[in-house]
Design a protein around this nucleic acid. Structure first.
Lengths: 254, 254
DNA sequence: GGTTCGACTTGACCTCGGTCAATCCGGAAT
DNA sequence: ATTCCGGATTGACCGAGGTCAAGTCGAACC
């Protein structure tokens, strides 16, 4: 992604929601102009992270929610023995940090996959604003709900799909989000490693590697390290649906 | 569970949060008495479902959140081809229905696993009340956040654990929730079928069946159809932790 | 009390994806 | 330019768990 231009953004550090190109994809979506100004008062400022930089760690006190402005991050949980499970990859416009609402501590971690800039929404201030702007409150609930639904998808992918379908769904989901961002949805730049992808899908890296090769042989993709061209979006979509796996992993087992 | 007594509860249909034994486990947890009365005004009434009865279906308009008062439910998503993925099993005190906040339609389904009674929180009224009672608003956010975290656990279980550990974790989680409800946490009554358990864990029913047998041989459990006695809670806890599976499913794959 | 039906169990077998190991490749450092 | 190193790929092999098939068991119904 265009990490080169992000550096320049620093000059516009105090840039607000009202003028942000992401507003339609972000928290402000569907909020009136006057309320938008109010929301602006809740946005502290922008924070920049380099590749590998941590936005928050397990156990950190809950201070804010975060919106990805540019770049990308991964969120993950890590157990005592150091074992990691990646929960998601987050592109511009996406909001993270909700895990900390329950206990006022983060119970997951967020790490930049590339140079990224982030909007910080200090929760104390956000709460003030939401109490004054009911629409924003509802919008915030909607966003968390979307997070819940997104996790449902992740769960279905892991529980019901074959490895190949999983990778197809993963790529399709990235492509769809590229489209929302008005990027070319057939030219993906994978900011995460193969290890990350494997972990996210509950597979091992060798399997993911083989699957990329197989999809390339099938003519669905052209893969070159981190860049993936989707030659046949139609086929890719097809692969997401096919092979109901363990179809006997039954229907409604009432 | 004691489905016999639930019928009698019908006489107390208009029972409120203030007098409900579950209040400490439910939405009211940590809310002052005066605010509690306010919350009462948002609780419509109780609804009773028989085994197999649907609380809501995919596509249903969002009308309310629901609290399980007695009995148990499963929530699940179902794709076009009828394939099901169970998202969770829900015991008394637990709140469901958050999936509908995003789009004002449910995108999952909830079905009673046994005769169950449910408190309905019509969202329109709930919204009124939360706007008047900020504490309740925060509490509601906390509850959704807990849902997010619970799904993280489900994801880790599916992605990182062996089948045996998965079943151990599932049983342990049930036992822990029994304890919160002050039931005997060593004597579980599985209201869901083996098919449901398998589906929830991303396994097939034969595997689950074999695992129950194995855990019985190991002296951890005594299994008799739907009733499971946990003979060695210590061993069970041990099994939840062991065998980091595909340990090479790496640590932090920066 | 026998029949039926569906949930559950058990066994024999096979496959998908994990394991282990050898290599490739590109970027960074010397 | 050469070395180094970590990510990525590829191959050979293996095993946990899925598949298929044959029971068993208990509850419901006549």
């Amino acid at each position: 992604m265009d990490s080169g231009t992000n550096v320049l953004d620093l000059s516009q550090l105090r840039r607000s929601c009202s003028s942000c190109a992401l507003s339609e994809l972000c928290l402000p979506a569907g909020i009136g102009n006057d309320d938008l100004e109010r929301l602006d008062t809740a946005v502290r400022d922008k924070r920049t992270l380099d590749r590998g930089g941590m936005l928050y760690r397990d156990g950190d006190p809950f201070e804010a929610l975060y919106v990805v402005r540019s770049g990308s991050l991964k969120t993950f949980v890590q157990d005592d023995s150091g074992d990691v499970q990646i929960l998601g990859f987050h592109l511009p416009g996406e909001i993270i940090g909700f895990d900390a609402l329950a206990s006022n501590r983060h119970v997951s971690q967020a790490e930049a996959l590339e140079r990224s800039s982030i909007c910080e929404l200090p929760y104390a201030r956000l709460q003030q604003v939401t109490s004054e702007v009911p629409a924003l409150h509802r919008q915030l609930m909607r966003v968390i709900s979307r997070e819940v639904i997104e996790e449902h998808r992740h769960l279905v992918m892991m529980g019901r799909q074959q490895a190949q379908e999983q990778l197809a769904i993963f790529l399709k989901s990235l492509a769809d989000r590229y489209q929302r961002l008005q990027r070319d949805s057939t030219a993906l730049t994978l900011s995460m490693s193969r290890y990350d992808i494997a972990n996210y899908l509950g597979l091992v890296v060798e399997t993911v590697s083989r699957l990329f090769s197989r999809l390339e042989e099938m003519g669905v993709l052209e893969v070159n390290r981190k860049s993936v061209r989707i030659c046949r979006p139609d086929l890719l979509a097809e692969l997401c649906r096919s092979s109901p796996v363990a179809a006997s992993k039954q229907r409604d087992a009432g």
